[in-house]
């Protein structure tokens, strides 16, 4: 399990990195934290002509708040997010999700940009990005563009980013005070990718629900935003009956696949169970 031979470049700037991508015309791979790419290289499932390592570009690691958004440099480590006071305060759902990402030694290297660009539909960060209607900034030869979460994920391990583009920033709307959040995940073992996970955010307004946000991990080839389930809550409030109805609707909105760990039916069933649990817990969190 040794990688094939490749050229290795560790550019010091983004422009240099973009030039390298252009030079290899799609045959280069971007190396971020490497926690998913390196196993693929070791299995020789990924066989790039070159690696463009972003780890020597210091300007790509930061966490900042701007206009109600928390912005992450693509190379911000999951470990930094886990221990960030800003994230704890302004994006508690992301903080909770981070604890589900692998294990601490994985989070030491793993990055938010890498996790999202890798687009594993069982991963937590793509689900949070989808639930929160986040966006990413991609930079390519023609400059920067902003891609909304709903336009980013195409299918398993595939995004709409071009081969000569680099995901440089992740933007998530900061969570209002008074909102409740929860990430409910079912995995076979601690630290494994989710069989199904549900990211939930609710903003109660008295008996009503001002906003509800729900997205899945593990329930299909891309993270699924459960808009129709959200609408039930936004219409009927956060009653037990509405939560049950939303959970039932959630199961209808997903088209999971079967694999050796879980059948499609079981994943659909889990989608309902975890949606209900996530909403109930989010509501409890909102009520402090």
């Amino acid at each position: 399990m040794k990688p094939v031979k490749f050229d290795y470049h560790a550019p010091a700037s983004l422009d240099e990195a973009l030039a390298l991508l252009r030079r290899y015309g799609g045959d280069a791979k971007i190396l971020a934290g490497g926690q998913s790419l390196m196993p693929l290289l070791n299995f020789r499932l990924s066989r790039p002509a070159a690696l463009v390592d972003l780890n020597r570009i210091p300007s790509l690691a930061y966490i900042e708040e701007h206009d109600g958004q928390v912005r992450f440099g693509a190379m911000t480590r999951q470990r930094m997010i886990e221990f960030s006071p800003l994230v704890a305060r302004r994006l508690p759902l992301l903080r909770e999700a981070t604890k589900w990402v692998g294990h601490l030694p994985i989070r030491t290297r793993g990055t938010i940009g890498g996790s999202i660009a890798h687009a594993d539909p069982s991963a937590e960060y793509p689900a949070v990005l989808t639930a929160l209607d986040g966006e990413v900034v991609a930079r390519g030869p023609k400059g920067e563009r902003v891609v909304k979460a709903k336009d980013l994920f195409v299918t398993y391990l595939t995004t709409s980013l071009e081969p000569d583009e680099i995901l440089v920033e992740v933007r998530l709307p900061a969570t209002d005070a008074g909102a409740g959040f929860a990430l409910e995940e079912f995995a076979r073992r601690h630290g494994d990718f989710a069989i199904v996970a549900i990211a939930a955010l609710v903003v109660p307004d008295g008996a009503r629900c001002r906003a509800a946000r729900l997205a899945t991990a593990g329930a299909g080839p891309v993270p699924v935003r459960l808009r129709a389930a959200e609408q039930i809550l936004e219409r009927d409030g956060l009653t037990d009956a509405a939560i049950d109805a939303a959970a039932g609707r959630a199961a209808e909105l997903v088209s999971p696949d079967s694999d050796i760990h879980a059948s499609a039916d079981y994943r659909r069933h889990l989608t309902a169970v975890l949606t209900r649990r996530a909403l109930r817990r989010a509501l409890r969190v909102a009520h402090g």
Binding site: P39, F43, R189, H190, G191, D192, I260
Partner: peptide, 16 residues
Amino acid sequence: LLTGSLMDYLVPTAAE
């Protein structure tokens, strides 16, 4: 073989 990695063949960790 469909369980050709330790992501698919699941050995218990301390948490289980």
